[in-house]
Amino acid sequence: MATEAPETRIVDSYRVACDGGEGALGHPRVYLQIPRETGFVECPYCDAKLVHKDHQSTN
């Protein structure tokens, strides 16, 4: 069985929250800061990659 690739989400803010997006099957909500240098951050729970809209073409 193949493992699905982590989700990539484009966001409008450099301060974001992630809760896994699956309601009761998600994970605790965490607040993450996207570094302006890199333009993205990965959630430590679900490995989702959150990319700021100003950096989406470079990642």
Rank of each mutant, 00 (worst) to 15 (best):
R29Y: 04
L50F: 12
D19V: 01
K53Q: 14
G26L: 02
P28T: 04
P28G: 03
T38Q: 08
S57Y: 12
H27V: 02
V51E: 09
C18P: 07
V41D: 07
D47Q: 13
S13N: 14
R9K: 11
P28V: 02
D54P: 00
R36T: 07
T58A: 15
L25T: 10
G26T: 05
Q56K: 13
L50D: 12
P44A: 04
E42S: 07
H52G: 00
R15Q: 13
C18M: 06
L50T: 10
R36Y: 07
A48R: 13
S57T: 12
Y45G: 02
A17K: 15
H55N: 00
G20D: 12
C46G: 07
V16K: 08
G23T: 09
L32G: 01
D47T: 07
L25A: 11
R36F: 05
C18K: 03
T8H: 09
S57C: 04
E4S: 09
N59L: 10
L50S: 10
E4T: 09
E7H: 11
K53M: 01
R9N: 03
V11D: 03
M1N: 12
K53S: 07
G26V: 05
E22S: 11
I10E: 14
V41H: 03
R29F: 02
D19G: 04
V16D: 13
T38M: 01
D47N: 12
G26I: 00
P6S: 01
E7V: 02
